[in-house]
Design a protein around this nucleic acid. Structure first.
Lengths: 231, 231
DNA sequence: GTCTATATGGAGATAGAC
DNA sequence: GTCTATCTCCATATAGAC
């Protein structure tokens, strides 16, 4: 990234401004007027270079997706066959961490943007599936090998929980800062990541390991009077 | 909830339509015109009854927050002093599950709406903190008693991960449906919840238990060449 | 590739009759 | 409490000169 925004091409100026503003206010919360004003380019240039607003939004997402996916893929491939689930989780999550913390402000905004997109049904197909499912599948297949005794469905559910944990973390909402009376800081992603790995690895082992409890309701059925029709 | 929307008061018709549409498209993705059209009331009545659009949005959130918080608080109070972390997680999460699955379509939309709000920095203060921190604190204090040897900060981080896992689940984005080739369904919240409890409980134990590994980076420091400045 | 100017529609909000 | 009508502003998108 160039040191001064002025040195960048018009396309990059528009993408950078879009990234920052979309991350803060969402797709509908930002106007092209505001984007082009922050980018210090004329309004008409947004449409000229990117077409409709939705295409600009997708261009913002796509710009960094390849680099992120590449880094994750390399990290997964670097692991030997003896790698445990903690190693796999680290390989999958660390590139996001490194880029959000040490990749510059653009990556920080990008991480927060993806965190919001991931919880919105509106963008599941057009963004999450098309941009990120390939590497997700790679992670899942490696995890099946590392936890060979698991019902495959439990691997998928554990991955689902991993994504939720990751996205909450990279959203940096600062809710936990207030809740903890300042003892925890959302911005301290290095620390959170170091806590997240053992937390998630233990979850994977409990749900997908050889001695898995597998299903809470099966163990508790008789103790809970309000439960209904579920197998 | 009345059987026919027509039998409801104007306020409830507007709140119901708002709830459905905000959950699907977000605050800025819905116009008051569309809301009042779906509610089959005149446009001017939205402003008359609720004031500015933002106040209507907050009214939608507040309408069900008290009932949800009450149910969670009762479930936590019902646990004896011998309750484990799995019991606490169940008490905190089950009311959300029960209302989303068996509370009617309004609660389903509500759960999906809250799931998106939780990952958006924009609503952290005005909604998440003001509406949900009180019961969150109750859960955390009980968890500190159940895991007395833990550094308090790890309890807060584990709670943070729990919220991420929960919100991803109740968002029902259907990403995992496609990723799993149909083997898992986002809509099957009863099954997901049954998997979520042992997953999260194991995470809490690993991060906050007596034999906690506590910090992944401390164990792995020498093996990772790319790590930088973090303590 | 960039600028000015504008087309066209929809947004939130309200005044005032009933 | 409800309806009609309207105010004012801003949205996306594009046409056409340079």
């Amino acid at each position: 990234m160039a040191r001064r925004e002025q040195e960048l091409s018009t396309q990059d100026r528009i993408l950078n401004a879009s990234e920052t503003l979309f991350a803060e206010f969402g797709f509908d919360g930002v106007s092209l007027r505001r984007i082009t004003q922050q980018a210090e380019v004329e309004l008409a240039l947004a449409n000229y270079h990117f077409g409709p607003k939705k295409e600009l939004f997708l261009a913002v997402v796509r710009r960094r997706a390849d680099e992120l996916n590449q880094a994750r893929s390399v990290a997964l491939d670097a692991l030997g066959p003896e790698a445990g689930v903690a190693d796999l989780i680290d390989a999958f999550t660390r590139p996001f961490l490194e880029k959000s913390v040490r990749g510059g402000p653009g990556w920080k905004s990008y991480a927060r943007l993806i965190a919001q997109i991931a919880n919105s049904p509106r963008w599941t197909e057009v963004i999450m599936a098309s941009q990120f499912d390939a590497v997700a599948t790679k992670f899942i297949e490696r995890t099946k090998l590392a936890l060979p005794h698991s019902d495959e469905r439990n691997i998928y559910w554990a991955f689902h929980f991993l994504i939720g944990t990751m996205m909450m973390t990279f959203a940096e909402t600062q809710r936990i800062d207030r809740l903890s009376g300042g003892r925890c800081r959302s911005s301290d992603l290095d620390t959170i990541h170091a806590k997240m790995i053992p937390f998630l690895a233990a979850g994977f082992e409990a749900l997908c390991g050889a001695d898995s409890v597998a299903d809470w309701s099966r163990n508790r059925r008789s103790a809970i009077g309000t439960m209904k029709d579920h197998p």
